[in-house]
Amino acid sequence: MTAETATKELGAARLAGADARRGGAGRDALIEFAGVSLAFAGKTVLDKIDLSIAKGEIVCIVGPSGCGKTTALRLASGLLAPSAGAIAFNGAPLQGPRRDVAIVFQDYGKALLPWRTAAGNVSLALEAAGTPRKARPQRIGALLAKVGLPNHADKYPSQMSGGMQQRLQIARCLAQEPIALMMDEPFGALDAMTRQELQDELLDIAAASGATIFFVTHDLEEAIYLGDRVIGLLPHPGRVGIELKIDLPRPRDQVATREAAQFLRLRRELYDFIKSAER
């Protein structure tokens, strides 16, 4: 996806995706939290969360540590069940993980199979989905090319850099042909340059596929840069504290978008929110 040609190809799709996205909360909800609470051992982690994520929307969750943002993502992906309230996916109650919902974990090193090559790791998702053996190599090749790893199919994760490993995890997630991507601080452990590259590639993928994205991060600028909407959680117990609609034009640009007056205003607002939340 780093190749210019790929970006060009995606241009049209990206615009279409961005147009669809403008609809915002008015459109069909893909994921809906209705009064969702979660308690662990008597301690309330999340308290009566109401949240609606529209199809094709990119929603970023920020908040101070301990606010339950990762827990919210695990609930939305079906890895956890709420103690109270209900979560609906596409209008039906969510009952555990789904193959069309892919989860990108922060600790890519632990989420990959170290004994399988890059191709083998992508293959795992295809095997799980029952893709015929003969159809796999071609799909794997296309997916690895899509995340910028076309020449690393035979490398083991231990032979790859952190950025490459996270790209590989994303390729495996894309192999699920997800309608939603659940991303838990996916770029938090990467260096600044790699992070920005992956942010743009993620936006390209989102625009091309129209996938809904639920993105947890502690990086406020990243949240504004990526999101259609940013939700800030308050801690103890975790609850929604702020909701910002991000109307920055798409496609976004690492330099121009981050310099826009509106970006700076949003950043200020979010920063003040986090400061007050931590107090």
Partner: peptide
């Protein structure tokens, strides 16, 4: 076994 891998397996519905 790394617990994260069991979560990956759950997410993939292996």
């Amino acid at each position: 076994v790394e617990p994260r891998l069991y979560e990956v397996a759950a997410a993939l519905r292996l």
